[in-house]
Structure formats: C-alpha cells, structure tokens
C-alpha cells in the first residue's frame, strides 16, 4: 500500500479512511480500506462493477444510512473528526460533503428553485438571486438557462440537467464534492463540459469521482484508486487494490490487476 502522504506531501488529507469494512446484512461487501483524500485535488475511484467504489463514495456523506441493512466498521475521519461518531449529525455531514449522482436527478421544480433548495433548507440569509446566478455560472450553465429560470428543471436536456445538479450541489458551498459516475448517462459533448467543470471546481473543492471511463479518470484525476473484486461465498467482495498518482496508475502500476484493468483487458 502506497503512503498517500508521500504521494501529495504538501496537501493535507481532508478525509482519512482507516481499515474500513462495509457489511450488507452479514456479508462483508467492502473489505479493509485505507485511504487519504487530498485537499483541493481530484481523486478518481476506478474498478470493475461490484467492487464497492460507489458504496465507499456514499459512506463519505453517510448516504448509506438510508439503506436499512447497511453497517460499517473502522474509522473514517473528516478534518480529524470521526464521521461515524454517535454525536455526529449526518445532515451536517452532507451539508459539507455534497454529491452529484449518476443519473441527473433535478427536482420537479423550477431551475431557480432547484438551485435555491439547498440554500433555503440550510438557512441561507444572503441574496438568493445572486447565489443562483453564481452557482449556475460555476456550473457553466448560466448562459444557457438565464432566460428560463422559471422553467422546470426536468424540461432541459440531460447534459444541462446534470450541470444543474452540479450547480445545485455547489450552491450550498460544500467542502467536498462527491461525483458518482456523473457522465454515465451523458453524450460525449456534455461529458467534456462536465470534465472541464471538474477542472474549474478543483480550485475550490476537494473532488472524489467514481468513473467507469478510464480516459476520464486519466484526464481529470490527480490521484487514482483502483478497486478490485473477489468472489467470496458466491458474492462479490470489493477491496482497494492500489492507489497512487494518476499517471503512475495508468503508466506504471505496481499491481498486475491494475495494469490489466487500465489497459482494458478486463472489467
């Protein structure tokens, strides 16, 4: 296991995962994860289906709490605070660690209200119009929708919807943005736009992105974590196989499985 501290020596870890195990019921679905997520960098999670990369992503903002049979062991800290301590409010966690989902999921509300939603529930006192505009500009969507802010967020194209969801996420000004295969349902042009956006957002946010697209990982990520899967009792168990600078993972990985995966020989 590479020492992430050495990978990015001048970047403090925002999230620190130590010996993290995820169970669904009695089954150990994700085994023994150690990972440090560096501040203001893009970390990509890659690996074959069922390797648990999305599951780990959803641990960071405690979204798995919505699944009744989910249970986790180990230590996961955020700015040295235990995310799973009993006195931690998941709502406060999600307010700081935002998420963009695989399928664009705008609310059936106006574009304006989609952006304003998070700010409203979190008690934003400032100028809402300004916040909406700023968030849409950050998501490179302002020019396209500025004349139809009252229209439904579900009435725009898929690529626009996903950027709306990104704008919605940055509107609450989180610290970390989680992206779960954000381009999986987008066309190549929309995908490029979103990738450019990720580059822009990196200046202000720590980003963790799950992707099936190897080129995408190599284009946007500073750090890449390769997850692999092993079959235990007929079920798929995921584990973190290798983590390193993106160029190392893609050009000179230590593990053979990583080499095979990034060169497209399985997965």
């Amino acid at each position: 296991m590479a020492d992430e501290q050495a990978i990015f020596p001048d970047s403090e870890p925002v999230i620190d995962v130590e010996n993290w195990n995820v169970y669904y019921g009695d089954f150990l679905a994700l085994k023994g994860i150690f990972l440090k997520v560096p501040k203001n960098k893009v970390t990509a999670f890659i690996g074959p289906s069922g390797c648990g990369k999305s599951t780990l992503l959803r641990c960071f903002n405690r979204l798995n709490d919505l699944i009744p049979i989910f249970r986790a062991e180990g230590r996961m800290t955020y700015h040295d605070q235990d995310l799973y301590a009993s006195d931690v409010d998941p709502v406060q966690v999600r307010r700081r660690i935002g998420m963009v989902f695989q399928k664009p999921n705008p609310f059936p509300k106006s574009i304006y209200d989609n952006i304003a939603y998070g700010a409203r529930v979190n008690g934003y006192q400032g100028d809402m119009d300004e916040l909406v505009e700023r968030s849409l500009r950050q998501a490179a969507l302002w020019e396209e929708v500025k004349d139809k802010l009252k229209q439904s967020g579900t009435a725009i194209s898929g690529g626009q919807q996903q950027r709306l969801c990104i704008a919605r996420t940055v509107a609450v000004q989180p610290d970390v943005v989680l992206m779960d295969e954000p381009c999986a349902s987008l066309d190549p042009i929309s995908t490029l736009k979103v990738e450019e956006l990720i580059h822009q957002l990196k200046e202000n946010y720590t980003i963790i992105i799950v992707t099936h697209n190897m080129q995408q990982a190599s284009r946007v990520a500073d750090l890449t974590a390769f997850f692999n899967v092993q079959v235990v009792d007929g079920k798929r168990q995921g584990y973190l196989a290798e983590v390193d600078r993106t160029e190392v993972i893609f050009q000179n990985p230590k593990e053979e499985a990583t080499q095979q995966y990034v060169s497209g020989r399985f997965g």
Partner: peptide
C-alpha cells in the same frame, strides 16, 4: 455561507 468543517455535532 461556508461552515466550519469541524462542527458536525
């Protein structure tokens, strides 16, 4: 609108 990242309680 930014919050102290360490105030999760």
């Amino acid at each position: 609108f930014q919050l102290d990242p360490t105030q999760l309680q």
